[in-house]
Nucleic acid binder design. Structure first.
Length: 226
DNA sequence: ATCCCGAGGG
DNA sequence: CCCTCTGGAT
């Protein structure tokens, strides 16, 4: 009763989508118009560097990560170099990104895994990526779609929240959300879809007070409040 | 205060 | 499922 039909009208001649797939299609199309040319903002020149940068990006801005990675990559250019890093020296380099002890442990563990189990290369299979210390599903998908050119739909806190608000899914587990979204987004658009959802989550659809009046998705968003 | 593209452990 | 890990920007 309190939230009944406070929804804007659809564009002229357009039917409000009634299925999750239909809402996903409109979401993908409208966010592509809203945020064209979206790119990964973590500076890197290969998959190993992107993997390290993504591990550092947890609870930290990309800009901050980009301030430490030049020093990091100069000091440890290869997985072999990073595998033999002195933890304290590494912690000092990455200190300003936060969580520096656990991130240092993850980075060294990651480099050792690459050396010991993957011939010094970043593996491409999801199954292998998530075995690497410090690499979860989200990080694995970032590396897959950005550095390896493989299908990947990173589901972070924003993608999860927006997907549920838009009722593209009813799942609460990020892995289930990813698997449910996959067939709704063309394989070669999943990475950009994810990055645009994240941008929209940061700029418009805030967790606390979503700016529905500014949102291009409001005309079909089941959770809109105006 | 709240946010920043999480992951591991109990 | 909760907790912890952590610094910087606004």
């Amino acid at each position: 009763m309190a939230t009944a039909e406070a929804r804007p009208d659809p564009p002229a001649g357009v039917r409000r989508p009634r299925s999750a797939r239909g809402r996903a299609r409109w979401t993908n199309q409208l966010l592509a118009e809203e945020y064209p040319g979206v790119v990964c903002e973590l500076d890197h020149s290969n998959a190993f560097e992107l993997l390290a940068a993504t591990i550092l990006s947890a609870q930290c801005t990309d800009a901050r990560v980009n301030m430490v990675t030049p020093t990091l990559f100069r000091r440890y250019p290869t997985p072999a170099d990073l595998a033999g890093a002195d933890p304290e020296e590494l912690e000092e380099i990455i200190h300003s990104t936060g969580f520096f002890r656990s991130k240092a442990r993850s980075l060294i563990g990651m480099a050792n895994a690459l050396e010991d189990r993957f011939g010094g290369e970043v593996p491409s299979a999801m199954k292998d990526l998530v075995e690497i210390p410090g690499v979860g599903r989200k990080t694995a998908n970032v590396v897959r779609c950005v550095a390896l050119g493989l299908p990947g739909l990173p589901v972070d806190t924003h993608v999860l929240r927006l997907s549920r608000l838009l009722e593209l899914t009813t799942e609460t587990d990020p892995v289930k959300v990813e698997l449910e979204l996959n067939p709704m987004v063309p394989a070669d658009e999943r990475g950009e879809f994810s990055m645009r959802m994240i941008l929209h989550g940061r700029r418009v659809c805030f967790a606390r007070r979503p700016q529905c009046a500014e949102c291009v998705l409001a005309w079909f968003c089941p959770s809109v409040s105006l």
